[in-house]
Design a protein around this nucleic acid. Structure first.
Lengths: 178, 178
DNA sequence: CGCGATTACTTGTTTCGACAACCATTACCC
DNA sequence: GGGTAATGGTTGTCGAAACAAGTAATCGCG
């Protein structure tokens, strides 16, 4: 048996172990903060934010599943829970009667407006603020290279400006300006 | 209400979305390959490798839980399954009769020897081989900075040379050399 | 030496995600 | 235009993780 496996060099091993550690710990940290402060999973947060980002606040289930990297069954379960909590609404799509649309409700937008600052703060303190501008760009490039293998369709990185002062800030601004 | 939340700049948002995507997709990719080719979760792989790395091939449950970033209940369940499959053995610790030791069996070492090449290959093709040496070092530094916030005790990054040609290679070498 | 506190681990219980099976609707195609 | 495939979504079941509670052994301390 030609056992020509090229094992990892010490540098490779060290970088790999750290990457694994981050991939292991980061989701847990995000879930913990959001669950504690807003009763939301990070997945639920991303899904709601995807809806809030839409001008119509509405997305087809399939499209939402693609943007959140979820299988359709998984999204269906999550959507049912979110609907039971009054955060989204589902209704049959007029154009394609097979399809279902999901819309974020006012209550959902309110919850996002509450949750977003704490979440952004967590993101800053845990990741962004410990990096120099140069490292931030390196992170962008490196993660992009990895994603080209992991996610060739670029479904996840296609998500637009989910964390800028977009929809949630606009929601807040809808309150009477005086 | 002082709503002084500092939202993410476009650069920050882009890097963050990509990091999240990697953290989301990487565990799934690792699990998929290992499960398909060796019937092991990535978590099980890491746990077995931690045992194989020990000179005595033995570790206390608590220590193993710490190294794999698992809670003790989780590790207990996983250990039971691994023991049922004959990959590890558990026995009461002689020095501290509260404690339990876990030892990887010969069958476990054989399985690791089978699984390691494919796993290392996955790691290479998905991550390491798409990075330049400079990017590899940047990854090490960046992940280290993030871990200093996420895992201040450095429990995970303390794991030694789990992917070098250590124990598994030695196991292979135990076969008569010619 | 004996009783409370702590450590080490195991065992339920509940919840969530993956997978498969299932209907409904639309598109293809001869 | 009618049969067949493909698409869009929901539901059921199983496996695995988080959490809480329980058991057993050790330590601390008077």
């Amino acid at each position: 048996m030609a056992d020509e496996t090229q094992w990892l060099s010490p540098e490779e091993s060290a970088a790999w172990v750290r990457l694994i550690a981050v991939a292991e710990l980061l989701p847990g940290a995000l879930d913990a903060q959001l669950l504690r402060d807003a009763g939301l999973t990070h997945f639920e947060y991303v899904a709601l934010m995807a809806l809030a980002d839409e001008p119509t606040r509405t997305l087809r289930m399939t499209e939402l599943a693609s943007r959140t990297n979820a299988t359709l069954p998984r999204l269906s379960h999550v959507a049912r829970r979110l609907e039971e909590r009054g955060l989204i609404r589902r209704f049959p799509c007029p154009e394609d009667r097979r399809a279902t649309n999901a819309t974020i409700t006012e209550a959902g937008l309110d919850l996002m407006a509450d949750a977003a600052p704490g979440h952004v703060d967590t993101v800053r303190t845990n990741v962004l603020d410990v990096l120099t501008p140069g490292q931030l760009e390196q992170l962008y490039v490196i993660a992009g290279a990895v994603l080209s293998k992991l996610d060739p369709d670029e479904r996840l990185s296609a998500t637009s400006c989910q964390y800028s002062e977009g929809p949630v800030a606009r929601t807040l601004a809808e309150s009477p300006p005086a």
